[in-house]
Computed example of a mutant assay.
Amino acid sequence: MKSLGSIRRDFAPWNDPKAKPYIQFENVTKRFGDFTAVDNLSLTIYEREFFALLGASGCGKSTLLRMLAGFEQPTSGRILLDGENLAGIPPYKRPVNMMFQSYALFPHMTVEKNIAFGLKQEGMPRADVERRVAEMLKLVKLEKFAKRKPHQLSGGQRQRVALARSVAKRPKVLLLDEPLGALDKKLREETQFELMDLQQELGLTFVVVTHDQEEAMTMADRIAIMDKGEVMQVATPAEVYEAPASRFVANFVGNVNMFEGKVAERTEKTARITGATGAQILVENAGEARAGADVAFAIRPEKIRISSAKPDNNVNALEGEVYDIAYLGDMTVYHVRLTDGQVVRAQSMNAARISDDPLTWNDRAWVSFRPDAGVVLTR
């Protein structure tokens, strides 16, 4: 079975018409005075899904999370959890728990007491509290740190304590607001996989808010791209990256080259796009674009080949000049200014230590790509 991206997920209830959504936002709007943070938004999330809300600051993603947690109330619309309308239910009575970026640990308490705090507040018997805390410590691999206080822990360890405290009460849904923002890059990458493994082991529904694209792409089953209080696209990471629904999504997620033009010719399988300066591009993923339509052709840098010699196959081959190079170790990024003035970004993996065809600044170069390498966008 063919699939966008390098993997095909077996967990995909959103593709099953019989599957019942676990969390539903129905025409939800949230206003703060004259400002509309969330605008008539509808969204469904399924049980045991790792769902990410991704967007720039101020797009409404944290407001959406806070409404689900009960810290904010919708101006209009409904939020349902497992079929139950959450309107009027206070945060402490909702079967959800929220983990904040700051972690909010009690500095005077040990790790085990931090984890036990919520359980004791609920009146759980002491023996059950001790057993549950031991389970949580083992789950997050902090058994040896049970007697330490937060200031004696690293950032990653404090993050795991906060996570253990959040799941100790066995919520139906765990909400994570920028959970890895305080960690350094390497630790953040390691913790992403830990969170994924933990979510699978617990079988909980995770909803994470982040502005970090790589974080969302790594962890989530599906991603909702948000802008100005609206959802622009909901899809799997591979679909968002390989088949963006609009220019906005294509530009927001990863790096992209955008060629604006008009569909000059359309067949059942292909389309020929003529750029503003006459450049001809043959594409296979033209979707619903019709002949004569103004469109954009979006292609990712890693799908563009760069060479000093003109490719044997003349299809989708454009000539230009190298004007910027960034060597990143595992890859080299080239900025090539085409003869029509447009700048194209191409990435080349450094599979060998020595290059047979080294390109440098001001060299003439050809960029080329396959007809199925990009996608046509109509909006």
Rank of each mutant, 00 (worst) to 15 (best):
V367A: 11
D312R: 12
Y22Q: 07
K18F: 08
A87V: 07
F50W: 02
A162E: 02
V140D: 01
F297C: 13
M99R: 03
R353A: 15
K18P: 00
E239P: 01
S154G: 14
M226Y: 04
R353Q: 13
V167M: 03
N251Y: 03
A243Y: 06
P244Y: 06
E112L: 01
E239F: 01
E265H: 15
R272Q: 14
L282G: 07
L142A: 05
I89W: 02
I7F: 05
A317N: 07
A289T: 07
I223L: 07
T274K: 15
A264H: 11
Q159R: 00
P95Y: 06
F50D: 11
R247V: 07
Y241Q: 11
G292Y: 03
E130S: 13
E130G: 05
K61G: 07
A238M: 08
F51H: 08
K138W: 00
D227C: 04
L105Q: 05
E72K: 00
A162K: 01
H335G: 12
G275S: 10
F35S: 13
K2E: 15
E319A: 15
C59L: 05
L202T: 06
D363E: 13
V295D: 14
L142G: 05
C59G: 06
V38P: 00
L105I: 04
I304A: 10
I299Q: 09
L204Y: 07
F206E: 10
V263D: 09
H335D: 14
M196G: 11
A286C: 15
H108I: 02
L328G: 04
E112I: 00
R305F: 10
E72Y: 02
V231Y: 04
A168R: 01
E242V: 05
K269H: 12
R158L: 08
M67H: 03
L176Q: 01
E230Y: 02
T210P: 01
E189C: 01
M99A: 15
I281H: 05
K120H: 10
K20Q: 12
P301N: 09
A317S: 15
V140R: 01
P91F: 02
R247H: 04
E284W: 01
T274V: 14
R8L: 11
G181Q: 09
P179S: 09
F259M: 14
L338C: 10
E230N: 13
G33K: 05
L187P: 03
E321C: 11
M331G: 05
R9G: 00
R131V: 07
L41C: 08
L54T: 06
V207I: 10
I306W: 04
T274G: 15
A373Q: 07
T274R: 15
E239Y: 02
A365L: 12
T205Q: 08
F145Q: 11
M1E: 13
T63M: 09
Y22N: 09
S307G: 15
F117C: 12
T274L: 14
A87M: 13
A12E: 10
M99V: 13
F369N: 09
S307E: 14
V38H: 03
Y241I: 09
L163P: 00
E288M: 09
R126V: 05
